[in-house]
Design a protein around this nucleic acid. Structure first.
Length: 183
DNA sequence: TGCACGATGAAC
DNA sequence: TTCATCGTGCAC
């Protein structure tokens, strides 16, 4: 499996989001290698995007978003679920792609249809915040073979507070894939 | 130092 | 539709 390079993440966030579909998320912990195919993502376009955490400026929690591309931004939401993002574009741009759902490929148990469930199944928590995704234990790779698929564009989930930004089609998923959280 | 509020998921 | 549950950010 070919690990995605830093240059993959250091590009337009919407392009990165769309190209992350079909890629493989790999996390090795406690001697177990877990692999899942990314089937649903959301793009968060930086401080001007009212739905992005970085819209409130650089804080202790969001500093990862302001950091260099190719790192994981993992945070706790609603006091009980973790969400995993991939930091994109140049340092300081504060953009990221939220991974919303994966299709189990290897050593993944339980449901994976949603950002919180995905993190639970992949054993991802805040300890992995700021982790470099070019490392050997936590990275994203390109599969040897890719099945052709169509990409569906929809508004993002749970960001109704973001005014007109809530309407933009910044959620992308593989059409017809049964592991997508919401068709 | 206190408190409102989530990029969710599960139950009702 | 309601609620569990807690770290973060900002008001006071």
């Amino acid at each position: 499996m070919r690990k995605l390079a830093r240059s993959f993440y250091d590009r337009d966030t919407i392009v990165v989001a769309r190209e992350l579909l079909g890629k493989l998320l790999v996390h090795q912990s406690c001697g177990v290698k877990r692999v899942g195919k990314i089937v649903e993502v959301e793009a968060y376009l930086g401080p001007h995007d009212l739905a992005a955490h970085s819209a409130k400026g650089r804080t202790e929690r969001t500093k990862t978003m302001f950091g260099p591309p190719g790192h994981a931004y993992v945070y706790l939401i609603y006091g009980m679920h973790h969400c995993m993002n991939v930091v994109t574009e140049r340092e300081g741009h504060a953009s990221a792609v939220l991974l919303r759902a994966i299709e189990p490929v290897e050593n993944v148990e339980g449901r994976t249809q949603g950002p919180g469930l995905l993190c639970r199944a992949m054993e991802i928590d805040r300890r992995l915040n700021e982790h470099d995704l070019l490392s050997d234990d936590f990275f994203i790779g390109a599969p040897e073979e890719v099945e052709p698929f169509l990409t569906v564009k929809r508004p993002r989930i749970g960001v109704d507070y973001a005014k007109h930004w809530a309407k933009r089609h910044l959620r992308f998923y593989i059409k017809g894939n049964p592991f997508v959280s919401r068709q």
